[in-house]
Design a protein around this nucleic acid. Structure first.
Lengths: 257, 257
DNA sequence: CAATAACATCTAACATGTTACATATTAACT
DNA sequence: AGTTAATATGTAACATGTTAGATGTTATTG
């Protein structure tokens, strides 16, 4: 269940739920809307973000039903933006829509997670390759700084902070390639993995091992040995695969078929 | 404009347009819907396919406005499935939605095309790597057979056939990696490039050059020299980049900003 | 009692009315 | 005339009523 202020009045029109307060705000500047690349924060975008966050953080558990109408009521919007948001999540593979039956948070599927991991490695390995070609000094410094913060977070057992830095590290690698939109593409394909990683962090302290693997990857980049970076990343995957099997043994209900 | 039978009656309810005839058909078997992976062919899916095809084939030109209501009328459906389909296309980067203003077929953007090309190469290079590890003989035979057909198509100047085989080649490389859903992901990220390639094929006979590049790539795979395959693919990109600049000079209106 | 058919229920898909907002156009004003 | 304000217009976003189909349950039949 989404833990959000439930307020349902019976009057016509939708009463402001959580979205009512932080209502739509658009960037206001001199230029026209179409010229500047202002990101329109529509209701459906907000609903999408809320649901996505809830799914990735396992607040909404794999296999759990999502009641569109209930969500709409809780968030104080109509069914339309909720449906739109869910359609996007389905596209991303985070929910499964069975027509005329129901919508469910997607269960974990080892084969799909394997594919997602493969895609992530492929993209980030290629990104590293490119980043090394153009500028390395500044990038390496950034990466190492991120690692420093990861160590701090690991020391004080700050899971959330560590997780955020983890994501940032991958984003930085993508950005360093200097390709417009690459980070967004990579982030989208990473959705499945993000969900799993959160679960793993929750179940056992994989933080320290993860940190070591990250350090090895960054070290390889610092040495400009692209191939070693790729291999190290590959190693990272197989570790992840073993963890996954453990998770499946412990929590089979999270997995499909 | 979409060239489709226009039929608009004024009665209540939506009169069957093109979609009316080939109406929704679901796979009927013993098992329940949720158990088997039946792909639900909804109206929005059909509208999506039609519009996507129209955009990629440049039947709908870059920059052209898409009138949702008109499309709905032409296809004999309501605005809802059209909106849903367009939202998906926007997600894919094929259309641009300006809230409260209009929806337009996305103009070509060199930087985004570059990113798309990068992603494609990254994924397919990685796929080749994996495919070579597990099974090569059968795969190489398949690829070479495809090339044989490409040569035939090139001989008789059959653009459409050549184009289809080109796509098939890339799909085959993805499938050979044995990763569930990889082909679909790669295909989606390839949308932008598919559009450009069609335009290039139309403007000058790049077919023969493309064929040679494909042959070089497949030859490298056949030799199991993964690195050479990657380099050859990289070469393929830079060629494509030059062609793009020529296209931009000839048809600037297709490009953004 | 098992198999099957009728039925009830629930949900996504679809249709359509309404609203808010981006933009163009015109009017007013300096 | 150039600039700003008022207005008109058109579209996506949103709200909500309706429909069709998937599934579970109960009744019916052999």
């Amino acid at each position: 269940m989404l833990r959000l202020p439930e307020r349902q009045t019976k009057r016509t029109g939708v009463e402001p739920g959580v979205l009512g307060a932080l209502d739509v705000q658009l960037g206001s500047s001199g230029k026209s809307f179409r010229e500047q690349k202002v990101v329109a924060v529509t209701r459906k975008d907000q609903v999408y973000s809320i649901l996505r966050q809830a799914i990735i953080s396992s607040q909404l558990a794999p296999g759990e039903a999502i009641r569109k109408e209930l969500v709409a009521l809780q968030l104080g919007v109509s069914r339309t933006p909720v449906s739109d948001a869910i359609a996007r999540l389905a596209d991303e593979g985070l929910v499964e829509i069975y027509p005329q039956t129901g919508t469910f948070v997607a269960r974990l599927r080892l084969d799909k997670i394997e594919t997602a991991q493969f895609v992530r490695v492929a993209l980030e390995t290629a990104a590293i390759r490119r980043a090394a070609e153009r500028s390395s000094a500044a990038v390496v410094a950034q990466l190492q700084n991120n690692l420093k913060n990861q160590r701090k977070a690991a020391d004080i057992q700050d899971f959330e902070r560590f997780y955020a830095l983890d994501e940032e590290l991958h984003d930085m690698i993508c950005d360093a390639a200097g390709l417009v939109g690459l980070r967004e593409i990579a982030a989208k394909e990473r959705s499945q993995i993000d969900r799993v990683r959160r679960l793993l962090l929750h179940y056992e302290t994989r933080m320290i091992e993860t940190l070591k693997e990250h350090e090895a990857i960054v070290a390889a980049i610092a040495d400009s040995s692209v191939e070693r970076a790729a291999v190290t990343m590959e190693d990272h995957i197989s570790k992840m695969g073993k963890m996954l099997l453990q998770l499946q043994a412990k929590r089979p209900e999270l997995f499909a078929s």
